[in-house]
Design a binder for these strands. Structure first.
Lengths: 228, 228
DNA sequence: ACTTTGACTTAGTCTAGACTAACTTATGCC
DNA sequence: GGCATAAGTTAGTCTAGACTAAGTCAAAGT
């Protein structure tokens, strides 16, 4: 009913809000006003104002005092932005020698300016890759995204072989540290112990040896059982 | 006196105005309100408003009812944008298979979003080139631009060997046509005749044979004497 | 059931940058 | 030299998207 008009060009801000809402509502059902405000570094009333506009244009559903969810139209737009962002990140690292901890900001600005055509050309130049430098799946041009259930290293079963698939942060300092520790997508990991009270996690790396890492970082390391 | 503050980030619109003013005032001394309006497709009062703001921030000098000129600060900012645009155009054609008639719009949007670092990396990947795909000189990172006196093919001396150096349009249809005629930077040309009343120009292409072209297009083909 | 508290929304303001309508300046023609 | 015309400017309005201040809703504790 709401999607009477085809793809109207979206403003930079609208694109940012849709992306934020996508990320926030990917686990729980609703994205709250204050979470969106915190993610975008704006004041809550600014979010309320934007919610009205997005809701009026049929990109989100709003349940007052509860939160928002993307409509199909909104989800399509959000996935388009995520595809842009991830293709850009990979292109910059693969072709222009960016480090995986430095690409985020550049991609964040470029994603609003690139054409669909340029993204597709970049993707093609890279062989239509499925994952970005952090291991996050790249949505296809058609708007499909791979959904794999991954478990944080902090929750992995003891003694079981896992593969590190995705590093779930964009923070340069954390990314730099993790790369120094050899913790990049594709590595094999087996948790050998967990200290109580949110203490560190010990694990062995393949290739590589025994390591210890804080719980907070361990939660960012998304893994998959090596056999499954 | 006016450049008390160092490089404040400029808005997208400001960047567009500075670029337009640079181009318009490169030949004559002043850029007029209506010429700027025509180039940016905005109404003259919008230009008057922006002139006030640019003038207040020390980027231009305004002589009421006569026009504007860039200050040194403004010229630096304009050349930075032109460098971005031209590096992007070259990168897109060299590395992502864009045609020289299709790069302009993409570069026009990207130039506002890229960082200095990305431009420098692209330039480096291309071997710090001096000319864009249309033969226009690329300003250096330090803000210097090559100034060569070129003569339009329409004004070239009869029987003298010239080199086509630059094609001075961004219009895709014209660029496509010129490329089909073999008229790309680097080609040798000798004018053999000129019809009166803005009639066509006949010339020989090296390599290539005898050709005829309308006066309007001939004015876009900037050449240099082959010996000079 | 009342109150407290934190989250959310409404109301009103600000800025950049566009617009139209109306006025002013400069120029060129007779 | 006076007037028509084109170009430029001023004045006032609009929209997106931010803000602060103030009010409202809902959930939790007494």
């Amino acid at each position: 009913m709401s999607a009477l008009l085809a793809d109207v060009p979206l403003s930079r801000s609208v694109e940012d809000y849709l992306k934020a809402i996508y990320h926030l509502s990917s686990q729980g059902g609703f994205a709250s006003t204050s979470d969106i405000a915190a993610m975008l570094l704006v004041a809550p009333p600014s979010v309320s104002g934007m919610i009205r506009r997005l809701s009026d244009s049929g990109l989100i559903e709003h349940v007052p005092y509860r939160g928002v969810q993307l409509t199909n139209q909104g989800r399509r737009a959000a996935l388009r932005m995520i595809r842009r962002h991830r293709v850009l990140e990979l292109y910059l690292t693969e072709r222009l020698q960016y480090d995986w901890d430095g690409v985020h900001d550049e991609a964040e600005r470029l994603e609003h300016a690139v054409s669909e055509e340029l993204i597709d050309r970049m993707a093609q130049a890279l062989g239509n890759p499925r994952y970005d430098p952090h291991g996050a799946p790249i949505p296809t041009a058609a708007g499909e995204i791979e959904e794999t259930v991954l478990v944080p290293l902090s929750d992995a079963e003891l003694g079981i072989a896992y593969e590190l698939r995705q590093v779930d942060t964009e923070d340069p300092a954390r990314l730099r540290y993790l790369a120094e520790q050899g913790l990049i997508p594709g590595k094999g990991v087996t948790v050998t112990g967990r200290q109580p009270f949110n203490g560190p996690v010990t694990f062995s790396l393949v290739p590589g040896g025994e390591r210890v890492i804080g719980r907070e970082l361990a939660q960012l390391l998304l893994c998959k059982r090596a056999d499954g």
